[in-house]
């Protein structure tokens, strides 16, 4: 295995990768790991989205990478600046789990599914197709996104590694 150039994406963070680098984010629970890919230019982007909407933000300035509705436009800007074309972009998603099944589900406990819904809505606004996703469930995921192949590899404790 060739040593790959790994670009770490933290929690509520986003980044792009080109020239064979691999984007990685660890320990996705209810957060969503969203990836965008331009297969022609081999430009990859990843965002670790924590919350569905920036409407509730009480921080200034807000961290754009944290919210689904701000992270996706920001990631798009960064990728287009790097030479990607909006029309060619394809999206993949993983995460959005519900780590603890609690009785009396309040809305804040449904944060995982809401993150997925919000990302999906945002992508459709930009007419970016979601080619595959592995979301929901009640387990954590670590993901790696290869900027050469556009493959998203997902690792979890119970289910091992799979590629989508």
């Amino acid at each position: 295995m060739i040593q790959q150039n790994l670009v770490k994406v933290g929690m509520a963070d986003l980044n792009i990768a080109t020239e064979g680098a691999v984007l990685k984010t660890t320990g996705l629970g209810s957060c969503v790991g969203l990836t965008l890919y331009d297969p022609h230019r081999k430009i990859a982007g990843m965002a670790h989205v924590m919350l569905p909407s920036s409407d509730i933000a009480r921080e200034t300035p807000i961290n754009l990478a944290k919210y689904a509705d701000t992270a996706i436009p920001e990631l798009l800007d960064r990728m287009i600046a790097a030479g990607a074309y909006l029309e060619r972009l394809k999206a993949k998603m993983a995460g959005g789990a519900q780590m603890f099944a609690m009785s009396g589900q309040s809305d804040s406990l449904r944060i995982g599914p809401r993150n997925v819904e919000s990302c999906t809505a945002m992508l459709s606004r930009f007419k970016i197709p979601i080619v595959s996703q592995d979301t929901g469930g009640s387990f954590g995921r670590t993901i790696e996104f290869d900027s050469v192949s556009g493959m998203l590899s997902i690792r979890s404790v119970q289910f091992g590694t799979k590629e989508i």
Binding site: G29, M99, V157
Partner: peptide, 20 residues
């Protein structure tokens, strides 16, 4: 029983809206 990051992030949501 799972990854620590995935579990603990669940307890941080209330902070998410006010900072990092």
């Amino acid at each position: 029983v799972d990854m620590a990051g995935a579990i603990l992030s669940y307890g941080l949501m209330q902070y998410g809206e006010m900072g990092d």
